[in-house]
Nucleic acid binder design. Structure first.
Length: 289
DNA sequence: CACTTGACCTGTCCGC
DNA sequence: TGCGGACAGGTCAAGT
């Protein structure tokens, strides 16, 4: 489930791997996965060179040298895997989740002038790729998301102000709302709430300064740890070279129902909150009415 | 109006 | 073994 750390990891990989490469051709099957017309492909994509790759919220932005950008959302099962001309086989088997490409989940194939390729795989077809003018990204793409939680200028005061836009909602639902703070999904909301010792159903206006401060710090610590681990691989996620992420080996509560809380030893339980599987320590994370 | 739930998909796992 | 159903969760539309 690509969230901020996974998309950041893919972005870092692609930025190095794709920079300077020129698109030669594009193959795609489902129109739903690739929202560009054949005219757009011919006019704006074939012959375009990659300047760099960026991330905003959970979106990847591939900036091209002709004033256009590819905007990509991986949703739950999307993968972007690069294969150079010398590594057509899979990577090291223990870390790799993808073998020979294309495979049955491949939706789009970008071939570059040097014959290297970028594969967009997506088992569930929820992800998409579209084309935007780079100059309209700020207005059309950036604007609808809340601030980046890891931005240097994102302060505790900013965090409180954003959360208080939804004072009567449960905190987990608010953390998952991309217009409040961007990039947090199911895994890292559970992990951050455990760090901050907050029950996911706690209403925002019931959070005191101590809890808000712990949550603010917790989110930043957890997201940075996850980036260091190359993200979380639950089922499908891989980085730009097809490698799994390692964060779930270090997760405190996510997917650990029945195991012991690493802080107090009490059992981790699973609930449904905001219609998402939710993992908490019932002793550390008490609900404040 | 504020907030919650269902649809979009496919592969996997569980119980019968 | 095979089959039906639940489940996985990011986002948006529809519902309460």
């Amino acid at each position: 489930m690509p969230e901020l750390p996974e998309v950041e990891t893919v972005k870092n990989g692609l930025n190095v791997l794709l920079k300077g490469r020129v698109i030669d051709s594009i193959k795609y099957d489902t129109p739903k996965s690739f929202l560009c017309s054949t005219e757009e492909v011919e006019q704006y994509l074939v012959g375009a060179g990659v300047i760099g790759v960026k991330r905003r919220a959970k979106l990847l932005l591939i900036n091209l040298d002709n004033g256009y950008s590819l905007v990509i959302h991986l949703k739950m099962t999307g993968q972007l895997v690069y294969r150079g001309t010398t590594n057509f086989g899979a990577g090291h088997p223990s870390r790799s989740l993808v073998g020979q490409l294309p495979d049955k989940s491949t939706r789009v194939i970008f071939t570059f002038r040097d014959h290297s390729r970028l594969f967009f795989n997506d088992q569930r077809k929820f992800g998409w790729i579209k084309l935007e003018r780079t100059s309209s990204l700020a207005e059309r793409v950036y604007k609808k998301f809340g601030p980046e939680p890891l931005a240097r200028d994102f302060t505790l005061a900013d965090f409180k102000k954003r959360l208080l836009l939804r004072p009567h909602s449960g905190i987990k639902a608010v953390l998952l709302d991309q217009s409040i703070v961007s990039g947090i999904g199911n895994i890292y909301s559970d992990e951050s709430l455990w760090v901050a010792k907050i029950h996911p159903l706690t209403k925002v206006d019931r959070l005191n300064d101590l809890k808000l401060s712990r949550l603010y710090k917790g989110i930043r610590v957890v997201l940075n740890e996850a980036i260091d681990q190359g993200g979380s691989t639950d089922r499908n996620y891989v980085d730009a070279l097809g490698r799994k992420g390692g964060y779930l080996n270090f997760a405190r509560v996510f997917r650990r129902e029945g195991q012991s809380c690493p802080r107090c030893g009490s059992k981790i339980i699973k609930l449904k909150v905001a219609s998402r599987g939710t993992h908490i320590c019932a002793r550390c994370q008490k609900l404040v009415a």
